[in-house]
Lab assay of single mutants.
Amino acid sequence: MSYSVTLTGPGPWGFRLQGGKDFNMPLTISRITPGSKAAQSQLSQGDLVVAIDGVNTDTMTHLEAQNKIKSASYNLSLTLQKS
């Protein structure tokens, strides 16, 4: 079951990613910084990142996902799936 979260910026957003197409692993939330915008939302460590700002992550490399997140200036919309 997927869910959506919109973090209001600017960054830093307070989470780290792992995985990506180049690692043959789905993009997942690997760490959440305590007290951060991510920590105050529904994000959980281990959640799968399905889309970033409406763009499906199935074919994204780790770097492409990082760049997509960094390019979000004020709002960052994520679609996630609980692990």
Score class of each variant (00 low, 15 high):
Asn56Thr: 15
Asp53Gln: 08
Asp58His: 12
Ile52Val: 06
Ser4His: 05
Ser41Phe: 09
Leu78Cys: 02
Gly14Met: 00
Ser71Met: 10
Leu76Val: 09
Phe15Pro: 00
Leu76Met: 06
Leu78Gly: 00
Lys70Glu: 13
Leu7Cys: 02
Pro10Met: 10
Gly11Asp: 06
Val55Gln: 12
Leu80Thr: 06
Asp22Pro: 08
Val5Cys: 06
Arg16Cys: 15
Ser30Ala: 12
Ile32Thr: 04
Leu17Gln: 02
Val50Lys: 13
Pro10Gln: 08
Leu78Lys: 01
Asp22Leu: 04
Thr8Val: 15
Met60Thr: 03
Ser83Met: 14
His62Val: 08
Gly19Lys: 03
Leu27Tyr: 03
Ser36Ile: 02
Leu17Tyr: 03
Asp22Met: 04
Ser73Ala: 14
Ala72Asn: 10
Tyr3Leu: 06
Gly54Cys: 05
Gly20Ala: 02
Gly14Tyr: 00
Arg16Ser: 14
Arg31Gly: 12
Leu80Glu: 00
Val49Gln: 00
His62Gly: 10
Asp53Glu: 12
Ala65Lys: 02
Pro34Trp: 04
Lys70Cys: 10
Leu7Asp: 02
Ser71His: 09
Leu27Lys: 02
Tyr3Arg: 05
Pro10Asp: 12
Thr59Ile: 08
Ser30Cys: 08
Ala38Met: 02
Gly35Arg: 08
Gln42Val: 10
Ala51His: 04
Ser4Ile: 14
Ile29Thr: 02
Met1Leu: 11
Tyr3Pro: 03
Tyr74Cys: 13
Leu17Asp: 00
Tyr3Trp: 05
Gly20Lys: 02
Ser2Gly: 09
Thr61Arg: 05
Lys70Tyr: 10
Leu80Arg: 01
Pro12Thr: 05
Glu64Ala: 08
Asn75Gln: 14
Phe23Lys: 15
Gln42Arg: 11
Ile69Ser: 03
Val50Gly: 03
Gly9Trp: 04
Pro34Glu: 13
Lys37Ser: 09
Thr8Glu: 15
Trp13Gly: 02
Thr57His: 01
Asn75Ala: 12
Asn56Arg: 10
Pro34Ala: 10
Ile69Gln: 02
Gln81Trp: 07
Asn56Gly: 14
Phe15Asp: 02
Lys82Ala: 15
Pro26Lys: 04
Tyr3Met: 06
Asp53Trp: 03
Ile52Trp: 01
Asp47Ile: 02
Pro12Arg: 05
Gln40Asn: 15
Leu17Phe: 07
Met25Val: 12
Pro34Gly: 06
Thr79Gln: 14
Ser2Asp: 11
Ile32Lys: 01
Gly20Trp: 01
